[in-house]
Nucleic acid binder design. Structure first.
Length: 271
DNA sequence: ACTTCGACCTGTTGGC
DNA sequence: TGCCAACAGGTCGAAG
């Protein structure tokens, strides 16, 4: 479910509620996420204050006094700010209960998400240490993309969805960025000119930044910390638009499969 | 070093 | 209306 804009929307939503708060208790109802939630999580983090709420790629990082809670929302995860009265539903796996009585509640029906603990610098954690640059930072630029796409036979779509190349670009925003840049998702990454790398980098930054301002994309179950959906779905040009006329050239949007994922693009304006 | 593919899960949808 | 295959916003790790 959540790509970078949804995770960033969640981060911004929860930060004011939990930063500087003390974790009074932790309730884990189901440990079986993608990796087991550490048995000792409660012991590690209870009575500690949240010092920071950061994001690296699609990972949320809760900085405590002695380490960091690493949270990933997988395909179907969401975090909400609740109170003690909020009804616990079927897939509500974890509660972080704070001194101000607020509860940060993780829901994840498919359980592809993760809640992990690290006592060291989180950037050195195995899952984070080999991630590529943040797409909205200057280190992700056309020169970088050009250099890292040389001699790559994989499609440009799979390259920009590769978190070791650049983080945060999932299926929706890969499709939308390639549409804006006029690039066919099947094109071999190594065949992009410097100019087209520049176009693509700009498109990725634009799409992600605009989606963040809309609170992300809600297709089915993404919700913000306050239970509201994101509104970027109204700004999508190709994702989920199979058969509909392209907004630019009128040709029907095509749907294909790449790397076992659906790709949507306009055969008229993407080459 | 790179690419592809299976695996992990539950819930919803679309075609018959 | 009901059944069931196909599919859904991710990504690791094994195999080629």
């Amino acid at each position: 479910m959540p790509e970078l804009p949804e995770v960033e929307t969640t981060r911004r939503g929860i930060e004011p509620h939990i930063r500087h708060q003390t974790i009074n208790d932790v309730v884990v109802r189901n440990h079986a996420l993608r990796w087991p939630i550490p048995k000792q999580l409660r012991k590690y983090i209870r009575k500690q204050q949240i010092q920071s709420v950061d994001r690296r790629g699609k990972y949320l990082l809760l900085g405590l006094e002695t380490g960091t809670v690493i949270i990933h929302l997988g395909m179907s995860g969401s975090l909400r700010i609740c109170t003690a009265n909020t009804v616990v539903e079927k897939h509500d796996h974890v509660d972080f209960i704070f001194g101000n009585k607020k509860i940060l509640r993780l829901r994840d029906p498919r359980r592809f998400g993760a809640v992990l603990w690290t006592a060291k610098d989180p950037a050195k954690h195995k899952l984070l240490s080999s991630l590529g640059p943040e797409p909205l930072e200057d280190s992700f630029n056309s020169h970088y993309l050009f250099e890292h796409s040389r001699k790559r036979s994989a499609s440009i779509k799979s390259l920009i969805m590769n978190s070791h190349i650049v983080v945060g670009v999932g299926n929706i925003y890969a499709c939308e960025s390639l549409f804006l840049a006029g690039i066919n998702p099947k094109r071999k990454a190594g065949s992009l000119s410097p100019a087209r790398c520049e176009k693509l980098v700009s498109a990725i930054k634009q799409v992600l930044a605009q989606s963040i301002t809309q609170g992300g994309t809600t297709l089915r179950d993404f919700i913000r910390e306050n239970g509201e959906p994101g509104y970027f779905a109204q700004r999508l040009f190709v994702y989920g638009k199979t058969g509909e006329p392209c907004a630019r050239c009128g040709k029907p949007i095509k749907q294909i499969t790449q790397q076992q994922r659906s790709t949507f693009y306009c055969p008229g304006c993407q080459h």
